[in-house]
Computed example of a mutant assay.
Amino acid sequence: MKTKKLWISLCIPCLAAGIALTPTARAQSTAEQAVPASHSATSKEEAKAQRKAERKAHRAKKNAELKDLEKHGYSPAGNQTQYPQNLQNAQQKSEAQQKMNKPASAP
């Protein structure tokens, strides 16, 4: 009998806490439901468009870098027996030209 009373005295506060928290959880779920479905679809589309634009910009940057290296003598489809050295030479030439084209900063 004492065990049953002890169990009940321990369970009642837990149940009360659960009941007290239940309306809050329901309010949150109804607030989430209040957001129109079109709004979440629009934000998903915007996020997708942003990721697509970022991919395009990244691809354009990489293509520009490759064209610059090709302009300075690197050929990715060419003879690859001297691969690292050919790439490094093209990078050095590109960097040297960029330094020459860059205006001197004023002190």
Results as ranks from 00 to 15, higher is better:
Ala27His: 09
Lys99Asp: 01
Lys62His: 01
Ser9Gly: 00
Lys4Met: 08
Asn86Asp: 15
Ala106Arg: 00
Ala60Pro: 03
Lys99Pro: 01
Tyr83Cys: 09
Leu15Ser: 10
Ala106Trp: 00
Ala106Gly: 01
Glu32Gln: 03
Leu15Arg: 08
Ala17Tyr: 13
Trp7Gly: 02
Arg26His: 10
Asn101Ile: 10
Leu69Tyr: 03
Arg59Met: 06
Lys93Thr: 07
Ala34Asn: 06
Arg59His: 08
Ile19Asp: 06
Gly73Phe: 05
Lys5Gly: 00
Asn63Glu: 11
Thr24Glu: 08
Asn101Ala: 15
Thr42Val: 01
Ile12His: 08
Leu15Tyr: 12
Glu45Cys: 00
Leu66Tyr: 12
Ser38Phe: 05
Gln98Ile: 08
Lys67Gln: 13
Ile8Arg: 02
Gln80Thr: 06
Thr22Ser: 09
Leu69Pro: 02
Ala25Trp: 14
Gly73Asp: 10
Ala64Ile: 13
Gln92Gly: 02
Ala64Lys: 11
Leu10Ile: 09
Cys11Gly: 06
Asn63Ser: 05
Ala16Val: 15
Ser94Thr: 03
Lys62Phe: 02
Ser43Arg: 07
Ala17Gly: 14
Asn79Phe: 01
His58Trp: 03
Gln92Cys: 04
Lys2Ala: 02
Asn101Gln: 15
Leu69Arg: 00
Thr24Gln: 05
Gln33Tyr: 08
Glu70Lys: 12
Lys44Leu: 12
Glu95Lys: 03
Ser38Gly: 03
Leu21Ala: 09
Leu6Met: 06
Gly78Glu: 11
Ser9Pro: 05
Ile8Cys: 04
Ala17Asp: 08
Ser29Gln: 11
Gln85Met: 04
Leu15Asp: 06
Ser43Val: 10
Glu95Thr: 08
Ala31Glu: 05
Leu10Thr: 11
Ala41Glu: 15
Asn63Cys: 01
Glu95Tyr: 04
Ala90Leu: 12
Ser105Gly: 07
Pro107Asn: 09
